[in-house]
Each structure stands twice: as structure tokens, then as C-alpha cells.
Design a binder for these strands. Sequence first.
DNA 1: CGCGATTTTGACGGCACTCAAGCGCCGTGG
DNA 2: CCACGGCGCTTGAGTGCCGTCAAAATCGCG
Lengths: 219, 219
Amino acid sequence: METTIFESEELRQLETLAQQRRTIKRYQHLFRAGSPLQYLYLIRAGSFKSCVLDSNGREQITGFHMNGELLGSCAIGTGKHLCDMMALEDSSVYEISFAEVERLVREIPTLQRCLNRAMSREVERNYKSMLLLGSMRAEERLATFLLDLSQRFAKQGYSATEFNLRMTREEIGSYLGLKFETVSRMFSNFRESHSIEVKNRAIEIKDLNRLQQMVGHYA
Amino acid sequence: METTIFESEELRQLETLAQQRRTIKRYQHLFRAGSPLQYLYLIRAGSFKSCVLDSNGREQITGFHMNGELLGSCAIGTGKHLCDMMALEDSSVYEISFAEVERLVREIPTLQRCLNRAMSREVERNYKSMLLLGSMRAEERLATFLLDLSQRFAKQGYSATEFNLRMTREEIGSYLGLKFETVSRMFSNFRESHSIEVKNRAIEIKDLNRLQQMVGHYA
DNA sequence: CGCGATTTTGACGGCACTCAAGCGCCGTGG
DNA sequence: CCACGGCGCTTGAGTGCCGTCAAAATCGCG
């Protein structure tokens, strides 16, 4: 009895093309930047991080991904993956053969729309990250991050106020452009202001309004 | 006698669909975020900036665009533009009716590839920006910016070492996640280290190696 | 239970921001 | 043509946020 809730409804169309399941152990890569696009993936269970590296070894986490989301879509244009995708915990995905998708896309026009939308969503998410990285202070970044997670958990039918982080402070820091000590300090600040309760990876949002206000007022 | 050099060769295919030219005056918008996608645009002359705004009025410039580049591609998925596009100087573009493109895309499979690639390029550029915003210090950001501009001018057949900036210090700052005073100071630093010559918007790169080294070594 | 990894917390320093003043370039109008 | 005004740019002084370095606590896992 599975009722996957997709990031976007039209992804249900892709689900019908899912050929097989694949399980990924924690810290394993689903694909790497530069490798050819063979499959698109729908997350059935678990979570992932995507990251890009530059020529000097710097790493930037570009996103965290959970249930119902499509992975690999930004490779559609070039046929090569643009980022590394690593499981944050033991996870499970549907494999969707891209060759199959390319074949079917000529017969089913709505399938193309579906792919295009997936890529646009990726661009839109990236724009939001750029805004965050370019113009927010540490407190605002972390508040934005928590509110985003909260919404996504809620959309999956989980609690919007109590959830467990799947990533380390360092990974949060990489995503938000902060050092892990700063992330930790901000969590402590939030606790002291009674906005959240933190116990390691366990988060309870106690004052949603306050978090939203933090994102709102800027200098 | 026009020989447009495109950002990517396959854009030449889109050029054949160009129906009319349009001129845009400085500081005019080509389109705005949220407006429906009616045309894609190929830049014939001039330059543009794209920016996103958040609900609190913060602005982030997501890119600068010049000759031969395609504008509006990230709206392909949703049918609505995701960013504002403003001319930095009096400019000229080809209009390409998106309705026409959508009609032709079923007959010409390579046209779809062309659009997909355009979107992938956008994602790739954004990843680079996120890396820059998330993990570089001011000096590295500005050096990266200058090297990127240099390459793009060179690709258009212009000098890689002497060019005029089309944007203000404040716009550079918005793009790089810095305040304009910091941008100005960094330019002065670069001049003092004889890496570049700056006179207002006029840039001369005098020591390309040094700029590249700046990007290289991190902490 | 014990070890390594993760997280917290403290002290300190530096890079970038803020605020402010002055300069220079350019377009406009007298 | 020149004077004026506004905007963009530069530069300085001071501050503060976040990074760095370090140590201790806690967690998770074998």
C-alpha cells in the first residue's frame, strides 16, 4: 500500500515509466557530475544531497532532496550529470530509463512538458538559493532553511513542526554558505529565543511566526 | 554584414526562427518575473541583467548577458518568466515567438534538444554562482567575475584584456553578494597589485595569471 | 563500553559592512 | 560654453558578524 506524494503532480506520469527499484546505502552516490545520464530517479524513501565541486576542490551543496522528488533532471540538456548526488541515509528510488523517456517523449507531448517543468523548478530553486547566499545574514539563512524543510515535510504528510534532520551541521553549512560552528550557534540562539527546540538532529519548531519574522526584516 | 557569434552553436537553429527585431532602451525591461512567456530573445547587440526579488524586496542579480545569448529560456517549463530582464544599455534583440517554437518542436526533434541545452546551461551557470556565493571571499569573487567576463568578450571576438563594464559597482555587488563599497575597494586592491588597470568602467587586465591564482588558492 | 564523529561552546581576530565625506564624470539647462 | 546638479565611485574610520582555532561534551555505532 504505497501512496507516494510527488513534489509536483505531473511527476505521476513519470512514475508509470518506472521500471525498477534501486536501493542506495548511506553515503553512496546515485550518480556523479560528468557521468552520462542513463536514468532519472524518483525518490521512494530516504533523502539525498546534490553538490558541485570546483577545480580547487571546494564543495557547494546545491540542494537536499526527499520523498517524491525527481533526481537527475538537470542533465537532460547535456546528457551528462551536472552534480554529484549522494544518499544521506539508506534510500530507495525508482529508476526511469532516460533512453525510454526520450523515445516516448515524441509520442506523448505532455511528457516533454513534465520534463521541462522539472528543469524550471530546478532553476527556480537555484534562484532562491542565490538570493539566500547573496543577501541574507546567518540567522535569516537558517530560518529560511527550517521553514523550507517544514513545508516540504508537511507536503509529505509529516509534521510541519517536528522532524529529524538528515544532514550534519557541516552539510547545512555548505548549503547555506556558513561554517558548521555558525550553524550550531544559530541553532542555540533559536533555542534561547524559544523559537525552536533542538536536540541534535531532532527539531521542534515552537514559534513559527518568529522564524518567519526573522526572514522578513532585513537590516 | 552580420556575423553573430552565439553562446552555443546550436542556437543558430533558433536564429532561423527569429521573426523581428526589437530595440530596448537602457533600463527598460524586456520581461518581468511572473509575466507569460511570449517570446524567447537572442541578443543582437547590447547587454542585460537578470534579477530575482523576494517577498521582502531584496534583489539578487542572477546574471549578466551579452551578444549571442538566449534570454527567457528558464520560463520554458512553466510558461512564466522566473526573473526580471533589464537592458543595461540601449540594446537590440531578435524576437522568437514561443508559440511558433512549440509548434515546430514536434516536427524538429533537434529543436527540443536546443531548448533543453539552453536550460541546462542556465542551471550550470547558477551552480557556479552558488559556489561563488557560498564559499569564496570578496577578492576571489571579483577575480572570478573578471575572468568570466574576459572569456566571454574573447569568445565574441573582442579583446580579452581590455573591455568596458556595462554595469555599476552596485550591480556587480548584487551579483557577487557584496556591497558596492567592497567591490570598489577590491578594484583598487587589484590596481595596487598591478593585476588590472581600472578607470571607472574601463578595465584592462594586466596580469591574468595573478587573477587566476587568486581564484585558485583558498585559505 | 570505548572510540570516532558530530556538536557545542568559548575566545579571538579579520573581513566585509555601515556610515560618512569628498571627488569625478556626465548630462542638462541656462 | 560653462555652471550646475546628480549619480556613481572612491576612500576612510569604526563596528560587528562570522570565521578560525581550540577544547570539551555528546552521540552513535561497533
